[in-house]
């Protein structure tokens, strides 16, 4: 029987399949959104309280108000660039990067290559 962590991971995996952001697209985000995404990239997963605490410890001038943080999190979650599990103060956020796409070359080419490469 799947435990709570398996179910949580499944929810995250399902949401991750919905898309995600490419790293290059991070460069085009407004500064506030990019700041949160960069923080999340380094932590990979944070709950709301941890995020608020991290933001509060940023240098003065880089900090966000609670309203700004909430608005940014809502935008990032709407786009599925951050995956939100749970609601409000208990919400957990996880960054969602777009999968690196595979090759567009024909399958025949890959099969031929594979047959020539020793295992």
């Amino acid at each position: 029987m799947a435990g709570i962590f398996d179910r949580l991971q499944k929810q995250i995996d399902d949401k991750r399949n919905e898309g995600g952001i490419s790293v290059l697209d991070l460069a085009d985000l407004p500064p506030t959104l990019r700041k949160i995404m960069r923080l999340m990239l380094r932590q990979t997963k944070m709950n709301y309280a941890q995020l608020r605490e991290t933001i509060e410890h940023l240098p003065e001038g880089e900090q966000l108000t609670r309203a700004n943080l909430d608005e940014a999190l809502e935008k990032l979650s709407e786009q599925a660039w951050l995956i939100q599990i749970g609601e409000g103060e208990r919400a957990v956020y996880k960054v969602n990067l777009r999968r690196r796409a595979g090759s567009n070359l024909s399958e025949t080419i890959w099969q031929n290559l594979d047959s020539k490469l020793k295992r």
Binding site: R98, R100, L117, K118
Partner: peptide, 14 residues
């Protein structure tokens, strides 16, 4: 074959 597998299939950047 392991390098070609990554190039062919991609992978999860997360």
């Amino acid at each position: 074959h392991e390098i070609s597998q990554i190039l062919r299939d991609g992978f999860d950047i997360n």
